[in-house]
């Protein structure tokens, strides 16, 4: 008797559990789909950005002429001469300038923070580099325009809106990227590498530069390339201090133009009825392609791990 009633109770319970389960399963599955959709949005966003920019850019470049677009070094929106030659060279030169300023200082700072810094000092320097990363780029541009441009004008003569000023400001702007990534990768190298080198009689500096840096090379390279990416894409600050003159700068004192600054300085008054605005969009597409190449290199570099 007792067994029977127990069985009946069990059957009832398992039935109700099954009911709850189907509802729970539906909820579980629908939420899982929702989470997956959120993740898929990232892919959708990247594809949409690439496709729409390219759809807009390709006919424009075709109309201008592919070779003319890439090789002509005059960028005169008003007289409809669209050659990105000087833009590409300007971007390359300012990026190299930024790396010349930012990489040695950044790597030395990262070395100091990873191997020399006492704890109390680290608590001061680390937030400082975070602040450097947080300062809006327009503030750097305004600071460059009102503080560094006059200094550069005194040093080199001319207007002060030139390659030297831009390299200097960009160099400061890429510091936090270089410092934080290379510091992390230096810290990720196993400690015995360092201890082994010191035990063999190397000085601390020799141990750092001959064993730690080679071991962390992929991370350090990533840091430099990401800094490069930031320098290439930087717009708000550069537009204010590069001069926006479509020429290939002959010296550090010459004004120039970059891909990004051409877009920012031209878009304000570009007409939509002719090729002016489409040409600027084509420049943005070129910038996107360059950055995509850099991102690919960074992802390939990341594969090395201990």
């Amino acid at each position: 008797m007792q067994k029977n009633s127990e069985n009946a109770e069990n059957a009832e319970m398992s039935e109700s559990i099954a009911k709850v389960n189907t509802r729970a399963v539906i909820k579980e599955i629908s939420m899982k789909v929702l989470f997956a959709i959120a993740a898929a949005l990232f892919v959708l966003a990247v594809l949409t950005i690439c496709i729409y920019l390219l759809i807009d850019a390709i006919p424009t470049i075709g109309e201008i002429g592919f070779v003319k677009f890439l090789t002509d070094d005059r960028w005169l929106i008003r007289s409809e001469r669209f050659g990105i030659g000087s833009l590409v060279v300007g971007t390359a030169l300012s990026t190299v300038g930024a790396l010349v300023v930012g990489v040695p200082i950044g790597l030395m700072t990262a070395t100091f923070m990873a191997f020399y810094c006492p704890k109390w000092l680290y608590k001061i320097i680390k937030p400082l580099t975070n602040i450097l990363a947080g300062i809006p780029s327009i503030v750097y541009g305004f600071f460059g325009l009102t503080v560094i441009v006059p200094i550069s004008r005194e040093l080199l003569g001319g207007g002060g809106l030139n390659l030297l000023t831009t390299s200097f400001v960009l160099g400061i702007m890429i510091l936090p990227t270089i410092i934080s990534i290379s510091e992390n990768s230096l810290r990720a190298v196993p400690k015995p590498f360092y201890e082994g080198a010191v035990a063999l009689g190397a000085t601390k500096e020799r141990a750092i530069f001959r064993t730690m840096f080679p071991a962390a090379s992929s991370g350090v390279l990533t840091a430099i390339i990401l800094g490069m990416g930031r320098a290439i894409g930087e717009t708000a600050a550069i537009t204010l201090i590069c001069g926006n003159i479509d020429q290939i700068p002959g010296s550090l004192a010459d004004p120039f133009i970059t891909l990004a600054s051409a877009i920012a300085s031209g878009m304000g008054y570009a007409s939509t009825t002719n090729l002016e605005r489409p040409a600027l969009i084509a420049v943005a597409a070129v910038l996107l392609i360059i950055i995509l190449l850099i991102t690919t290199v960074v992802m390939l570099l990341k594969k090395k791990k201990y």
């Binding site: 993740a39 990232f42 990247v46 949409t48 920019l53 894409g233 943005a284 910038l287 950055i291 992802m299």
Partner: peptide
């Protein structure tokens, strides 16, 4: 694929986002 997409998205310069937003 999502990871690659997220990394790509975080590397795109703000001016390109601006132009995309303007078109789209």
């Amino acid at each position: 694929i999502v990871r690659v997409a997220a990394e790509t998205l975080s590397g795109i310069p703000s001016v390109v986002f601006g132009i995309f937003g303007m078109i789209f």
